[in-house]
Design a protein around this nucleic acid. Sequence first.
DNA 1: GTCTATAACTCGATAGAC
DNA 2: GTCTATCGAGTTATAGAC
Lengths: 191, 191
Amino acid sequence: MFLVKGYEATGIAEILREAGVNSGSLYYFFKTKEDLLLAVLDWYTAHLRPEVIDPVFARVNDPIERVFGVLESYRTMLTMTDCRMGCPIGNLAIEMSEQSESVRRKILLNFENWRHVVRQCLVDAGGRLPKDIDRDDLSTLVLTVMEGAVMQARAHRSLKPYDASVALLRDYVLRLEAAARASYSNVTPSN
Amino acid sequence: MFLVKGYEATGIAEILREAGVNSGSLYYFFKTKEDLLLAVLDWYTAHLRPEVIDPVFARVNDPIERVFGVLESYRTMLTMTDCRMGCPIGNLAIEMSEQSESVRRKILLNFENWRHVVRQCLVDAGGRLPKDIDRDDLSTLVLTVMEGAVMQARAHRSLKPYDASVALLRDYVLRLEAAARASYSNVTPSN
DNA sequence: GTCTATAACTCGATAGAC
DNA sequence: GTCTATCGAGTTATAGAC
């Protein structure tokens, strides 16, 4: 609920009702509402690889296609929720970054975790991308596009902004690959 | 305060204190808290051009540079607020899109307003961009990159993700311009 | 049109029985 | 470890004097 509706908009009473427990039980495990959020963010960090990344990597082998496979899985999330939920972390990133320092740090960790996966794919792509394109920066752009596109899709209640953004990101990557091929053939004359 | 801290996190009492008025005055003009937010969003729509766009357009003439000039002004906002505030609409877009339909519509209007400015620049760029690149889609990508980059800059409390994202967007646009030049010389042989 | 006072309610959190 | 009952503060919004 924090991830979907946001922190402030989610009341403890609502959480208790949904969980079918009483406040005593919740406060036995979590000292405060913020403590509960921190635990949710830890859970989400642990959940990214087994639930989101691994299924994509199991069916896609090409490192660059894997990146777009991950983006595809966020598209699926938008589809299934009628564009009401995209990346759950992005919501909280904006709402909580200046309200709580410890929450901000955990959100950062989630972003870095995500970006690490993408960066590894880009590194695995090796010479298919121009060597003067920083892989870390490119992984930042991929996260940027995902988050910005999800935001617009939610505001529009439509996949169109998401699809348009990802399609142009793909166009960019294709042009990067073409440039890498061209510069490769400069160094090593073909046949 | 809605734009900086979010809707739920901003209390009426806080607004009254900051404004130096009493609740009776506020509720004389605005029926509810949501009504006040809707008025703020209207105000923001009206202020985009005179306060954000016009100053940039006054000092930059090149249509493509104008787009990056606008992005530069969001960078300035991040700098001045120590990366605590970027695009004020993005915050609300995520927080309020599913809480209130009328708020969502006004946020959409703000996005469309912004995107319209960028799209016009891209249309003005004419043949400098490949003709098979949809200008509307590209304006979506520009907004996507701005919002996603601002989100990460806030989470990191650093300009680095913003700068990296915008630099790669510029690299993409440069490659698009190069491609347009190349295809132009195919049609109209040079000299 | 602005004030003070407060209604009506929800919030996060606690106490203590079981 | 979970329950019920409730505290105290904070919330949005209203009433009525001026």
